[in-house]
């Protein structure tokens, strides 16, 4: 059984926050265990923050579309926007922050891609027809009995 749903919103921090909360609430009702839903929320938030901060950085905030597709053991989340492509058409590597530095040199950002890559099982990116299409895949053990493998 495959369940899909989608939503779209304007790329601002406040709209992103409420839309992502709704998506994650819906995922919880579909039987995704709470701790995994937390992880999906972190990765999805980081991905959408990047759209707000980078893809639409030089333009009026455009739309972001989130589509979720849940199978018995996987959750696919795609995030689409019409903003700028990633530099060189490549996703950032997402290296872990170096914490072995003096306090004044500690990083205050740049954690986002590391978190996405840690939490998602798979990350795909495609630029087509002026849109960024980022897909995150999460392996999921759905707890609802109707969705057993």
């Amino acid at each position: 059984m495959v369940k899909t749903f989608a939503c779209s919103f304007t790329a601002t921090n406040t709209d992103a926050r409420s839309s992502i909360s709704s998506v994650v609430a819906r995922l919880r009702t579909l039987g995704i265990p709470s701790a995994r839903a937390d992880e999906v929320q972190i990765a999805l938030t980081e991905a959408v923050n990047n759209v707000v901060e980078h893809a639409y950085a030089d333009a009026t905030p455009g739309d972001v579309r989130i589509k979720a597709e849940l199978t018995h053991d996987r959750l696919w989340i795609s995030i689409q926007d019409a903003g700028s492509p990633f530099p060189n058409g490549q996703l950032p590597e997402g290296k872990p922050a170096d914490v072995n530095v003096p306090v004044k040199s500690l990083p205050e950002g740049g954690f986002g891609w590391f978190l996405i890559r840690e939490l998602a099982s798979q990350v795909q990116y495609e630029r087509s027809e002026g849109s960024n299409n980022l897909t995150l895949c999460f392996e999921i053990q759905v707890t609802s009995p109707s969705a057993e493998a």
Binding site: T45, E46, P107, E108, G109
Partner: peptide, 16 residues
């Protein structure tokens, strides 16, 4: 209940 990398960065900044 929720923190993202921006919030984490802000706590690091608060310490610095």
């Amino acid at each position: 209940q929720f923190i993202d990398s921006s919030g984490l960065g802000a706590i690091v900044a608060a310490m610095k």
